[in-house]
Design a protein around this nucleic acid. Structure first.
Lengths: 142, 142
DNA sequence: GCCTTTTTTCTACCCTATCTCAAATAGCTT
DNA sequence: AAGCTATTTGAGATAGGGTAGAAAAAAGGC
C-alpha cells in the first residue's frame, strides 16, 4: 500500500513522536509553526485524516468536540469526570483478547481501540453532597 | 441528590426510553417537535447536559463532532471503520471487572464506559488493495 | 393572588473542522 | 535540466454542532 508520506505528513508524524502525547489539531498547527515547520490549518487536518486512515495514528474525541491525536501505541485509556472534565490515565486494559476475536469474526483490520470510563471523580462527588454546584473547575484533560 | 427533573428533562428521558437507541441532540429536537413536545434547541442541550451529569444517560461522540445520547444501559460497543465510517454493534464486553477495580482504587463513581474499535471493514480493505480510493460510502453509523 | 426562583426561549456567537479553488510543489519523461 | 502532469498546499469562506446571555414564561411558596 502507499507508504510514502507527503512532507506535511512526515512533519506531523515526527512531531507526534517527539511529544509522545495526545494533542489537538489546532495545537499541532501552532507548535509546528513555532518550529518553522508551519503549514496551513487545512493541511494539518488533511494530513491527520490521511494518517488516521492508514492507522499511523489514533484519535480520541473530547466532549467539547475537539479531537486529540497521538501515535498508534500501547493501550492508553482514561477515566473521565463528567462534572469537571478531568481525565485520569489508566494502564490496565482487558480487551486485547476480544480484539483478536473481532478481527477473526468480522474480518475487520483493527488499528486500535478506545476505552473510556465516565462518572464522577471523588472531588466532584464531595462537592455534590455538601453545597451543590461548586461548578466546573477549569481542569485540562490529560 | 436532586432527583426531580424539569418538564424538558422528563420529555427527553421518556423519548430516549421509547426509542431505545442512541440519537443526536438535533434529532431529539426534531422528533419531540413532531410529537408536539417541542422545545428549543438550547433547552435540549441543557437538559441533556444535566442528565448526563447525573448519570441518567450516556454519550457517544462520533468523529464528525456530534454526540449520540442514549439511556444508561448494558454494554453497547462498536467496531467502526475509519474509511467508510460504518459502525457494527458488539455484544461482548470484558471490562466489567476492571470497572469495579477502578471504582475502588480511584474512588470514582463510574456511570458507564465506552469501548470502541477502529480499523478497516472488509469492504474497505478490499477497495484499498484493488483500485485505490473507491472513496467513502455514505453509510450511517449504527 | 403576589413575589421569588427556576426553567425556557430566542438570538447571537464560538470553535472545530471542511470546502473551494488557485498557486506551488513533486514526480515523470525525454 | 526543461516541460508536463498529478498531487499537495495555502488562504479564506463556509458549514455545523454546540454554547452563552438576557429577557420572557412557568412553577413554587407564602
Amino acid at each position: 500500500m502507499k507508504t510514502q508520506h507527503t512532507r506535511s505528513q512526515k512533519r506531523i508524524l515526527n512531531f507526534l513522536q517527539s511529544v509522545n502525547r495526545a494533542i489537538s489539531a489546532q495545537d499541532i498547527y501552532v507548535e509546528l509553526r513555532n518550529q518553522n515547520q508551519g503549514m496551513s490549518l487545512a493541511t494539518v487536518y488533511r494530513a491527520l485524516e490521511a494518517l488516521k486512515r492508514e492507522g499511523a495514528l489514533q484519535v480520541r474525541m473530547l466532549s467539547n468536540g475537539e479531537s486529540l491525536y497521538s501515535c498508534t501505541q500501547q493501550d492508553k485509556h482514561h477515566l473521565t469526570c463528567l462534572e469537571c472534565g478531568k481525565s485520569i490515565s489508566l494502564d490496565k486494559c482487558p480487551v486485547q483478547e476480544l480484539e483478536t476475536q473481532l478481527h477473526n469474526s468480522y474480518k475487520f483490520k483493527i488499528y486500535y481501540h478506545t476505552l473510556e470510563f465516565f462518572g464522577l471523580c471523588n472531588i466532584c462527588q464531595a462537592a455534590q453532597v455538601s453545597g451543590n454546584s461548586e461548578d466546573r473547575l477549569g481542569l485540562d484533560p490529560a
